[in-house]
Amino acid sequence: MGMPNRKYADGEVVMGRWPGSVLYYEVQVTSYDDASHLYTVKYKDGTELALKESDIRLQS
């Protein structure tokens, strides 16, 4: 078993793309699913969504 190939840690605050949009919002990573390679993130309004790594970026 190798290390999970994840870029962002639980609790890390990053920018997540809103689905169907080009806009990124501040989100907190809450979990990562090794099987689906999706991150569960929480937006400031409390919305929780699963995002692909390509829809997440570090805060500038």
Rank of each mutant, 00 (worst) to 15 (best):
A50C: 14
V13K: 09
Y39F: 02
D10H: 05
M3P: 14
P19F: 05
Y24S: 03
T30D: 05
V13M: 14
S54A: 11
S31M: 07
R57T: 11
Y43K: 08
A35T: 14
K52R: 13
D33Y: 02
G20W: 05
V22Q: 14
R17K: 11
T30Q: 14
L51H: 01
D34R: 06
N5Q: 12
M3A: 14
R6I: 04
L38Y: 10
S21Q: 10
D33P: 01
V29M: 01
K52D: 10
R6V: 03
A9S: 10
V29Q: 00
V29S: 00
A9P: 07
H37N: 13
T40C: 09
R57G: 07
D55Y: 04
D33W: 02
H37Y: 09
G2C: 07
G46K: 04
N5C: 10
G11N: 06
K42R: 13
A50F: 15
V14D: 01
W18M: 09
Y8F: 11
T40K: 10
K44W: 13
G20V: 02
V41G: 02
V22H: 14
P19Y: 04
G20T: 04
D34H: 11
R57N: 07
V27H: 01
R6L: 03
L38K: 08
S36K: 11
V29L: 02
V27S: 03
P4G: 12
E12N: 04
A35P: 05
Y25L: 11
S54R: 08
S60A: 12
L58M: 13
V41L: 05
P19K: 06
S60D: 15
E26D: 05
D33R: 02
K42T: 10
D33E: 05
W18Q: 08
Y32C: 01
I56N: 01
K42A: 07
K7D: 03
T40L: 12
E26G: 02
M3E: 14
Y39K: 00
M15S: 06
M3V: 15
A9N: 10
A35K: 13
L58T: 14
V27I: 05
Y39A: 00
N5H: 08
Y39C: 01
S31R: 09
D34Y: 14
R17V: 05
R6H: 06
Y25F: 13
L23I: 14
K52M: 12
R17N: 04
E53C: 03
D45K: 02
V22G: 14
G16Q: 02
V27M: 14
K7S: 05
E12L: 08
M15D: 05
V27L: 07
